[in-house]
């Protein structure tokens, strides 16, 4: 009895404190307090939907489009890598994009990576080898911030896993630059701060990254595909999906096999359950 009495007292007390000291002031403030400020982000932000037609790897049966991944790699190499590192990916991983061993060697050698001089022991640079990771464009975070108006360009290895929307987010950012509607901007008193760029798909619409893809034909694709801005954005976002999760397609293929086996095993388990229990339950009336 005393436990129940104590429980009732404690329950009433905590609910009473909650209602009188938290809920009532909260409701009062919500109803009569000053209205919340309008954030420019909520006026200009538009959710990006990604490229028309989607990606080859979409859906449970999706596959890599290797030509697309190779084009995306080219966009990364010629545009993004000026500022963004790709530190969790090695050159040897490029073999998964359909490059031959010789092509991977050549590709690795086309990058300059930090090294140690074997004679003097001093730090130097050397051509990359397949076992090397992609080099970072800046020696450290302070150098990165100093070169980029105090914003550190994020590493891109995991970018499509580290943002809501994944590849579609990356595509939207790359294609979301422009100017805010001048009439609307005037109305809410919005101005893009100096050193930042307006991007309607970036959560607070002011992004530190200057528009990276500005011209059609900025990259000359080796396979002859026309390099429009949406095409380059699609290709590089597909490539960054692969860098974030090289096992994506293999994972789903394994999944189909595992689930197929489990469906079969579970059906057998169900039949044996029914057989063992036969006669234990009355027939339904």
């Amino acid at each position: 009895m005393s436990i129940r009495l104590g429980g009732i007292i404690f329950g009433l007390a905590i609910a009473g404190i909650l209602v009188l000291w938290s809920l009532v002031p909260g409701v009062k403030n919500y109803a009569f307090g000053p209205p919340a400020e309008v954030q420019p982000a909520t006026v200009f932000y538009e959710h990006g939907e990604g490229p028309e037609g989607g990606y080859a790897f979409d859906g449970p049966l999706g596959r890599w489009d290797y030509a697309q991944l190779q084009r995306g790699y080219q966009v990364y190499k010629e545009v993004c890598s000026a500022c963004h590192s790709l530190k969790f990916v090695s050159f040897r991983n490029l073999a998964q994009l359909g490059y031959t061993e010789a092509e991977v060697d050549a590709e690795a050698a086309s990058w300059t990576v930090p090294g140690i001089d074997p004679q003097t022991g001093e730090t130097t640079t050397r051509p990359g080898e397949p076992t090397d990771h992609f080099p970072s464009p800046y020696p450290n975070a302070i150098a990165a911030a100093a070169a980029n108006n105090n914003a550190i360009p994020p590493d891109l290895s995991l970018i499509t896993k580290a943002r809501h929307g994944g590849a579609r987010y990356v595509y939207s950012i790359l294609t979301g630059y422009g100017e805010p509607d001048p009439a609307l901007a005037k109305k809410v008193g919005f101005e893009t701060p100096t050193g930042l760029y307006f991007n309607k798909h970036f959560p607070n619409v002011n992004i530190a990254m200057p528009p990276p893809l500005v011209l059609d034909g900025q990259v000359s694709y080796a396979d002859g595909t026309k390099a429009t801005i949406p095409q380059m954005a699609t290709d590089v976002s597909a490539f960054l999906t692969w860098t974030a999760e090289p096992s994506l397609v293999a994972r789903r293929q394994t999944g189909w096999f595992v689930i197929g086996f489990l469906l079969f095993a579970t059906a057998l388990a169900f039949l044996s359950y029914k057989q063992i229990w036969a006669g234990m339950k009355p027939k339904k009336k």
Partner: peptide, 10 residues
Amino acid sequence: TAYYFLHFLV
């Protein structure tokens, strides 16, 4: 939250 405590304790 108020209901949660009232449910179990009262």
